[in-house]
Nucleic acid binder design. Sequence first.
DNA 1: CCCCAGTCCTGCGGGC
DNA 2: TGCCCGCAGGACTGGG
Length: 280
Amino acid sequence: MPELPEVETMVRGIRPAMEGAKILEFVACPCEKKPISLKPSIKELSSRLQGVKVQAVERLAKRVLFKFNTGEIAVFEPRMTGLVLVADPPSQAHLRFEFRLIKNRKKSSVWIWDRRGLGTFQLYSAEDFEVALGGNVLGPDALLIAEDVFASRLKKTNREVKVALLDQKLVAGVGNLYASEILHEAKVHPQKTAAKLTKPQCKRIHAAMNRILLEAIAYEGSTLSDGTYRNALNKDGSYQNKHRVYAKGDETCLTCHKSTVIRIVQAQRSTFFCARCQKR
DNA sequence: CCCCAGTCCTGCGGGC
DNA sequence: TGCCCGCAGGACTGGG
């Protein structure tokens, strides 16, 4: 499931091919099953993107932004199984769209692939982009948020801290996997009420968030046992080998080597933690 | 403000 | 062996 590190890895992977390139065509792949959520229609998208130049490819929280010389911005939100690729996809069956590009007289393609099709692709004018994603729609990026701002935002909610970390308005980029890992490293119980966190706890969560997300980027993200997430070259990430609690229910805790990792459900999502390392 | 359940979707694995 | 069902969860929505 692409979270901040996975999306950052995707962006870095396609940036060399895309930035400065001209879009010859943007097409729906013929093998597409059901279209992923798309705005506007594929027909209008194709005509608006034809011939435009890609100025920048950026990450916005868990989204990929394609910024064009027209001022328009396309947003790909991978959600659970979406990928952007410069190499052959994991399977032809779930290819969704293709950017046909030309850069320095060399043609290449960038593909959007999505097995479950929960992802979305939208093209916005600069104004519409501001309405949809600007302002306070998303909180500060998890890698940029200042420690005191982060702490004061946590202090304002009575939700359990694990649930609060998943709130993209509070802090943007953390998802279900990294939330468990961050709280484990910070030695904070996932069911602790966010507003009741002590200052040192907030500080530890902030530090763990930064360290873990940066390390996960360095390892090119986490490819889980379902193998869905791949980098832009269709290669596995390797941060899954560094996980200490996620998807390790009933296993001995890798930190204390004494207790067992527990799985609980919070907000209909799995949380993994060690009750010995992470006291209430 | 917050919570909860439902929605989208496919592949996988447990159970029978 | 094969089929059914539950589960995985990011973001959003509607109702309480």
